[in-house]
Amino acid sequence: MSDLNSGLSPDSLAQIDREVAKYPAEQKRSAVMSALRIAQVEKGWLSADTIKLVADYLGIAPMAAHEVATFYNMYDRSPVGKYKLTVCTNLPCALSGGAEAGEYLQKKLGIHYNETTADGKFTLKEGECMGACGYAPVLLVNNHTMCNHMTPDAIDRKLAEFN
């Protein structure tokens, strides 16, 4: 992680600029969520240094960016594995097998929530409602791919895809 202190890549900055341009000039802070997402994609996770880089770039207090980065659980504030599996444990999912899905994954991967497997392949996270309660239990892979009806069998099939 030697590039932690170095700035964001020109590509990332260009992406952030595009987000900033969506808001009035004096409202640059409105782009903080997108900017943090772009920074996370580049760096893999959001260190305090990265958060400060984003804050400085937008001209806001580091704490203002830190508030956002800690509020939303799709931002990772520690390094994650190649596949980040986020299990929804909010009430509808939890009642429809979400809790079991989480336990099954913990047993299968040999890690607890918020841990990464020794080979650096999987990180397990608890997630907030993903707006798909009808398809419970749901699971999110790397913040982007939603998987429905994650019974133990479905989980096995999914994990097999990653091998």
Binding site: A48, P62, T70, F71
Partner: peptide, 16 residues
């Protein structure tokens, strides 16, 4: 200089 990090039951007042 001070903000509220985290959310819900886990929110905490802190500095950066």
């Amino acid at each position: 200089e001070i903000g509220m990090a985290g959310r819900g039951e886990h929110s905490e007042i802190m500095s950066f």
